[in-house]
Each structure stands twice: as C-alpha cells, then as structure tokens.
C-alpha cells in the first residue's frame, strides 16, 4: 500500500492529526514564522522535519502551509504557475487528505497559495497568504558558499559583495544574467532571494497586500515579507530593472502582459501562459 493510498483511504487520514504534522512541530514552524514576519527578509532557522516529499521538492513550503492552515482555509497549489503538474497535485492531495480543506485553482478565491516559483497573474488581495517553496534561501550564496561568512555579511548589512557581483555581471555578460532569484532589498534592510520567481514577478512583491512566507526545508530556513512592505530589486541607480520581454502573445489566450513559457505540445514549440488557470479563464471569458 502506498502512502498516497493510505492517506486517501480515510479523510482526514487515520493516524494523523490535523494537517499531518504533530502539534509541537507546527508550533515550532509558527514561532519561526512570527520572528520572520517581525524581521522582514531575515532568514530564520527552524527545526525542519522529514516530510512525505523529498527535500528539495517543496518540503519547506509544505511545512509552512501545514503549520498555518486552518480548517476554514481555501487552498491553491501551483508548480511553475500550473495547478495540474505532478508536484502541485501531490502536495495538494497530501494537504487535502490530512486537513479536508477546500481547494481551488482560482487564485482570487484561495486564502492560502502554495507556490513553486510563480506569483499568480490575478490581482491578489489583503488577507491572502502566499507560501513559496525555496530551493536556495541565501541570496549571498552567489558570493560566498560559507554560511558562517554570509551570516556575518547579513548581520552587518554588508551587501557590497552582491553589488560587486552585479557589476561584474554587467561588465562580463553585458546585461544582468539573473533569469530568476533576482536579489531584492526588503524595507531598506536585509537582502533576500525572492525564490526563483522570474523577474516578471519581482515587482509584484513590492508593497503587496498579501503576506509572503518562504520555506526552505532542506536548508531549514524560513523568511517572510509582511503585507505592504517595500521590496526593491538591487539595481544600479542609473540602470533600469529589466523584466523578461515577451515577443509574442500567448498562443492560447492571446495575452500580451503575462509571463509565458515554452510549451512543446502538438508537435510544435509555442509560447503559452505559465499561469494555467488565469489563461483558462481568459479563454472562457473570450468565448462568452
């Protein structure tokens, strides 16, 4: 019998409390999250537990989701913008099986959205919680791989090494080579990795009405951006922050202002919306 069968046999799954994790573990995560919210952008270590997903497959985001979820919540889970990819389905079913909360694909209806590397295209509102799965929590990893060093740099707000990295990047590549995880400064203080969201989404974090929680299970780190917090990408004062340029509209819904990804279906490569639900609703509206 697989774990999935076991979990789906009875709802909420027999033998597990509400939301899979035991209460002290959830409390531990919530305590770390409270600290993270109080110090925006600061990386807070927490006692990361083993999850029924492999570390690096959303175990951090999952622990955050399970720790803050209440029975009244409505859950949406996306993987690169898609509700129907394997990772999103596995996580959604696990959470659903152990909490029995409502699930949705509509970002506007969800109260909690667990995401891997995208922010939904819909306008989000106050009271919503975004939970990001984080593969690499420390934005200073690019300048020094030793946590003992990067912790000190963060503590002293010594971000000159990141700026130097950005300078060298511009000189050697000709433009900034970050395709994702563009480092941002949170409320004029800590520098933070906005997880591998594309540049297209970085602005969405700035003074966003929603609460952003970031969980890195493998690194055992959480961090947060409270609502209406300033989030600014690190760019030189005389250089613009460049977003991805979409050269074609979405092949499905025709949208020209959303983030597109390559799709290799139907024997050809085409560009389609990464946010599948938003794209679907656009097409339906167009039909009507």
């Amino acid at each position: 019998m697989t774990l999935r069968d076991l979990l789906l046999k009875e709802r909420p799954a027999a033998g597990y409390g509400f939301a899979y994790m035991d209460r002290p573990s959830k409390r531990e995560v919530r305590r770390a999250l409270l600290k993270a919210v109080c110090i925006p952008g600061h990386q807070v270590p927490f006692a990361s537990r083993e999850m029924p997903v492999a570390r690096g497959w959303g175990s951090g985001g999952l622990q955050v989701t399970l720790s803050v979820l209440t029975p009244e919540d409505t859950l949406k889970v996306i993987d690169q913008g898609a509700d129907d990819s394997m990772n999103a389905i596995a996580i959604r079913e696990l959470v659903q099986a152990t909490t029995n909360v409502k699930t949705t694909t509509d970002a506007r209806e969800a109260t909690l959205i667990q995401t891997r590397h995208r922010i939904p295209e819909d306008e989000l509102h106050e009271g919503q919680v975004m939970v990001f799965q984080v593969p690499i929590a420390d934005p200073l990893r690019i300048v020094d791989s030793r946590p003992s060093v990067t912790r000190r740099l963060h503590a002293e707000r010594d971000y000159a090494p990141v700026w130097l990295y950005l300078y060298e990047d511009l000189v050697q590549v000709g433009h900034s080579s970050f395709t994702h995880s563009y480092p941002v400064e949170v409320e004029g203080g800590y520098v933070m990795s906005p997880t591998p969201i594309p540049r297209h989404d970085v602005d969405r974090l700035d003074r966003a009405p929603f609460l952003s929680l970031f969980g890195a299970g493998r690194e055992a780190i959480v961090y947060a951006v409270p609502p209406y917090t300033r989030v600014r990408p690190l760019v030189f004062s005389d250089r613009p922050f460049e977003r991805e340029r979409m050269t074609v509209p979405c092949a499905l819904c025709g949208s020209a202002d959303t983030y597109l990804v390559e799709d290799e279906g139907h024997g050809q490569t085409r560009m389609v919306c990464s946010d599948t639900d938003h794209c679907r609703r656009r097409r339906e509206e167009a039909c009507r």
């Binding site: 010594d158 000159a160 700026w163 130097l164 300078y167 511009l170 030189f236 004062s237 005389d238 250089r239």
Partner: peptide
Amino acid sequence: LAAGARGYEA
C-alpha cells in the same frame, strides 16, 4: 561599492 556608491556610470 563598499563605500556605498551605487551608480553604474560613475
């Protein structure tokens, strides 16, 4: 940069 300069052209 360590001294706080943030203008690329400068």
